[in-house]
Design a protein around this nucleic acid. Structure first.
Lengths: 205, 205, 205, 205
DNA sequence: AATGAATGAGCCTTCATTCAT
DNA sequence: TATGAATGAAGGCTCATTCAT
């Protein structure tokens, strides 16, 4: 999170846009972690990225745009991980575990990431764009989970099981987001898998 | 928008402090819901309460103080409900249900309350005072839950069961906080109770 | 300066005006000493006097009025002392010494008094009322001094000697006002008397 | 009222700091003269300098910082003049006269400068930073004066003579600061030199 | 006479944004 | 591309003043 993409000594004039945008998004995540969303200013983000405040508006329409892109980055990063792991899963249960493991992956417990997600949650209701991408992500997660559970749980119980699993994932994550990451990051994953297993056992019967 | 909480006919000049403080706390909750914490200003809160912006500083040291008291009000309100319901519970399982039902009570799904809690969560990491009262509340909840589960679950499984239950409660609540309150507020309570029951069944064996 | 005129337990309803006014003037002097004129507020003055802020406007038109009366009090106090001492003086030289001794009397080196006088000086140019009473006082002082010197100094040198004496008085006082009262309050008086004596010696020749 | 110090044709965007700082210090002196320290606001200073109020905080930490730098400017300006004139003086008496002439130089009787010095005096007791630089200046002045007087006055009388001279300088200046600059700016210098001469005459004997 | 509640104006300061270089 | 200067709009907070009690 803190390594520089390229050194400050070599600044090619072309193709900087994606690099700078990514730099600024990283800086925004760090600034939110350091100061909280309410106290995150354009200047602080720019300082974190090692650039001047003015340049931010060359790469993003305005502050809101930068913050929106930051939130989208978080969501897409998570989605990418989930898709990757799902691609490697072979059985239904492996698919469920892939989802759990990507939602509760080690990276999701990085303090900067947790702070940014919490900020995203707090802000979503007051930003239609934010709410929209968050809802899309949430719908996909439920859909993936339901699809994975369908083969092993009776159709009338799938929805409740999926809801419960999402709740377990988010609830565990929230604890760590509020009170500090887990000593053993495997613990929440194990707990959630156990829940799913119990649901499958129940659903099969 | 600007209706007065208490009628204009009786405006006592003495002993206004508790009335005004409560008025302003209510207004703060509404303002957070309307604009989000980051865009909640003292003026907006005062307008919501139907008073001038200046008077806020007669009753609260500063904006942070008002917001802190608002958050504390939410926490104490929840705590009060939980203590009441626990007092009426007779069996261990009733005690567990009392906790679930107070955390997922209908009032907790009021849009204003959900918005304020989300804001509290997002802000806690950047306010020692906030984090402190939130941690106290979280510790009490876990303690209550563990005590209630102890008689019916083997000691080596109590902690995991309590953690799981808290996660289920928070996770379900979070879904509704983000995507709108439940159609049937009984549903999340039923789901959580089912989880606890399965844990008890597992724990007993 | 800090003793209460009357205790708070016995509050006669009649004839309070002069007492309260004097209390508030004393409190204003102390507040100016404590906080500086720029940071002296009505509330601070009222608190110093042990009354509520609102009551100040029963005894003074507004804050400016209170401060003006405070400054006038200082000037009249000094004038009263000078008149008293002049009345007891018998010879021309005694009259000059009386003026010196009243301007550099021990009371004039009280920290509260020095702070208030400095504030008066800084404010005078921006308050016509203040400048007026200050000028009257200054004119009287020069006049008294010239009259006292006339019998012992040639008329063509009286004015310069009076100017020099006033300068010596004010200059010495200013040092103490800025850097703390004199260890030996007799020292500045002696120095000024020596100056006058040298002027008389010169003037006589 | 709003004329720019430097022409509008050349507005360099780089290296504005020293120019703007000096502009703002000048504007602060004028604002203090116009309104008095208590009524000098950042907006008034900015308006005097022909810039927006916001920009003040680009060049000074806060209002206090600007006022402090303003006061320091006055002190350093005076000190610079004194050092220059002392450098040109050849004899002990010339050195004393150099000090007198710099303290009572024509520039010191400019209304804006006098108003700012008075404000400095009134504020010093309530600002440690201000008191500190004022004390340093005062100490240097006394030291310079004592050194200059040492060769021509017996050691046991040097201190009193220096004190008296400082008092004469400050006292005369104070008269003009309060009641308007001298018709003949040479007059106070002559009077002070006469005092010093009399002290030397006395000290030699 | 005295208080505390209440207001409204104004001040300092911050900050997103624009612009000339 | 990148910067720092500059602005203007708020925001938080203070405070003198008024008023009902």
């Amino acid at each position: 999170m803190k390594q520089r993409i390229i050194g400050p000594e070599a600044m090619p004039k072309l193709g900087m846009a994606p690099i700078r945008r990514r730099q600024l998004i990283d800086a925004a995540i760090m600034a939110i972690h350091d100061h909280g969303l309410a106290d995150t200013t354009v200047s602080k983000i720019a300082a974190r990225a090692g650039v001047s405040a003015g340049i931010v508006h060359h790469y993003f329409r305005d502050k809101d745009d930068l913050l929106f892109e930051t939130m989208r980055f978080l969501l897409e990063d998570l989605r990418r991980t989930a898709v990757e792991r799902l691609g490697q899963a072979r059985t239904p249960v492996e698919r469920v575990h892939a989802i759990i493991d990507s939602c509760l992956a080690d990276e999701q417990f990085a303090p900067e990431v947790m702070a940014a997600w919490l900020a995203l949650y707090g802000q979503a209701k007051h930003s239609p764009r934010l709410l929209r991408i968050l809802s899309i992500y949430a719908r996909r997660l439920r859909s993936d989970l339901a699809n994975a559970l369908k083969p092993v749980i009776g159709p009338e119980r799938v929805k409740a099981a999926a809801e419960g699993t999402v709740a377990m994932i988010d609830g565990l994550w929230l604890q760590y987001a509020l009170h500090g990451g887990p000593d053993d990051p495997e613990f929440p994953r194990r707990l959630t898998r156990a829940y799913v297993d119990s649901q499958i056992a129940l659903g099969r019967a």
